[in-house]
Structure formats: structure tokens, C-alpha cells
Design a binder for these strands. Structure first.
Length: 280
RNA sequence: GCCCACGAUAGCCGAG
């Protein structure tokens, strides 16, 4: 059964839902009982394919087969609804879980927080952050990341700093994701100075900037109109072995174009093609 | 605690 599950998972991850589904039927025919993991994997596959209806249908089949949906099953459903922008339905799943006697875990709440973070609803994100703690769950680094992103998206950078502070008190170490979210928060506001400060601090603490860090920072420079600094950053990243990708170049092309230097924009565009990247 | 399932970061454009 574990072997089957691994196979089913492989098919789902490569978007071959028909084959995954076929395998499920084969398991049934051979008299093997698919486990709750099997079902959850398939439901996850449908969710990632954007097919909420089929995902719900599978939940139904799962229950009919006498398999109890687990926390992960509910999490997957919430994730799908969140991706689809159906926050209210996603939130309703929490109540459904509780009614079914299933306990939400930190991921359950983090999924909802992420959803609210994406639309800049800090208040709601925070609401579930609190709820998580009320349930006696410990916020992990991903949960803090979601809260941080909510602050950044809402433009509440002071609150973002407060979140970092709380992480410290909770003894949760910052990682590259955390720094990148924060740096991007400043970048979105065109504050390359604060962004530079974050970049400086992360390096000081031994974190190596990655493609996300650099691209966000370049974006900050472009927004602030400092194309010189943007180009210097490109040089920096190459020097540290981080190759600019399509997004990095698009940021630059856009930056030069907004600064009314179409010829510079074109030069970046050519450089991108020479680097073997296809414009998208 | 670990094993087969679930959550996090960047650009432009389009759609609304």
C-alpha cells in the first residue's frame, strides 16, 4: 500500500491525475484498501490542478469508503479554496473539522493566514494567528512568515518589525524566506534604503542572498529610480554566483523603460537573450 | 521524534 501511495503521489505531482486515479481504481480492484493518505494525495492532486469539484467528489468517495478525512485532508481542501480566493469557504472548513472531531494544526491556520496575507488583510491574518496560539499550537517560522507577509502587503512596516521582534522572543530563528519577505515589503514601497538595510543585516548574519533577494532589491532600486544601484546589484549577484533569471531581467527592462531609457532597456533585453533566456 | 499525504519569498503582461 505504501508503494501504491508513493506511486499515486508521483503521478499527482506530475499532474497526471488520470493515471493517479487509475491506480486508485486498480488498488480497489485488487482488494487493497486505499488509506487516508492515498485519498489525501489524490485530493491534493486535483486541488493543484485547480479542480475543486473533483477534489470535493474525492472527499465524498473517501468518506463513503469508510476513510476518515484527516487534518491534512482538510488542509488540502482549505488550501485549494484559498488559492481560488474563496476565503469564506476556507474558513468554514475549520468549523467543519472541529465538528468532525478533527483538530486543526498550525498548517491549517497558516494556510488561512497566507490567504489573508495575499489580499493584505492583516486583521484577519492576525485573527487566525491568535487562534492558533489559543489552541495551544506554537507558531513556526512559516506562520510567522505569513504574518509578516500580511503586514508587508498591508503596508504596515512597523507591524512587520514588531513581528520580527516577537519571533526573537519566541526563539524562532529567521531564515532566508523571512528576510526576503521583509526586503520585498520595503521594495514594494520603493524604499531601497530600508531594503538595503535588510540586505546588509542578513549578510551580516551569515545568510546568503538568493535570486529572490537580489531580484527584490533590484526592484527596490528600480522603483526608487536608482538604476545605477540596480546594475551594480546585478554585478554583485553574478559575482556571488547567483545568475539573473527572466524575472530579474524583466525587472531591469521595466526599470530602464520607466526611467525613460528605452535603449538601456533594450540592451538588458539583449543581454537576457545572450544569457540563453527566453522572454516570456 | 522519523517514516507514503498538507502550508512560506521576487518581475512584466493579460484577464477582471
Amino acid at each position: 500500500i505504501v508503494t501504491y501511495n508513493i506511486l499515486v503521489n508521483a503521478f499527482c505531482k506530475t499532474r497526471k491525475m488520470d493515471r493517479a486515479f487509475g491506480l486508485l481504481n486498480r488498488m480497489r480492484k485488487e482488494g487493497q484498501r486505499p488509506t487516508f493518505q492515498t485519498y489525501t494525495t489524490i485530493i491534493d492532486g486535483f486541488i493543484r490542478a485547480g479542480d475543486i469539484k473533483m477534489a470535493l467528489e474525492m472527499v465524498h468517495q473517501m468518506k463513503k469508503a469508510g476513510c476518515k478525512p484527516s487534518t491534512a485532508t482538510y488542509n488540502v481542501m482549505m488550501y485549494g479554496l484559498v488559492q481560488d480566493g474563496q476565503m469564506n469557504r476556507a474558513v468554514a472548513i475549520i468549523d467543519e473539522m472541529v465538528l468532525a472531531g478533527i483538530t486543526p494544526n498550525e498548517r491549517s491556520y497558516t494556510i488561512l493566514m497566507e490567504g489573508y496575507a495575499c489580499i493584505g488583510e492583516l486583521g484577519n491574518a492576525y485573527k487566525f494567528f491568535k487562534k492558533m496560539k489559543e489552541d495551544g499550537l506554537k507558531a513556526d517560522i512559516v506562520s510567522y512568515g505569513a504574518l509578516l507577509k500580511a503586514c508587508c502587503k498591508a503596508g504596515r512596516m512597523q507591524s512587520a518589525l514588531a513581528v520580527l521582534h516577537e519571533m526573537n522572543s519566541a526563539g524562532v530563528e529567521r531564515n532566508l524566506f523571512i528576510y526576503n519577505i521583509l526586503l520585498d515589503g520595503w521594495a514594494q514601497r520603493g524604499d531601497m534604503w530600508e531594503a538595503a538595510e535588510v540586505l546588509h543585516q542578513m549578510c551580516k548574519e551569515g545568510h546568503h542572498p538568493d535570486i529572490y533577494t537580489y531580484t527584490s532589491f533590484i526592484n527596490a532600486c528600480c522603483k526608487a529610480g536608482d538604476m545605477k544601484r540596480a546594475m551594480e546589484t546585478v554585478a554583485d549577484m553574478k559575482r556571488t554566483g547567483v545568475e539573473p533569471n527572466i524575472k530579474t531581467y524583466t525587472t531591469l527592462v521595466h526599470g530602464w523603460a520607466s526611467a525613460s531609457y528605452p535603449e538601456k532597456a533594450l540592451a538588458c533585453y539583449h543581454e537576457m537573450k545572450e544569457a540563453g533566456l527566453k522572454p516570456d
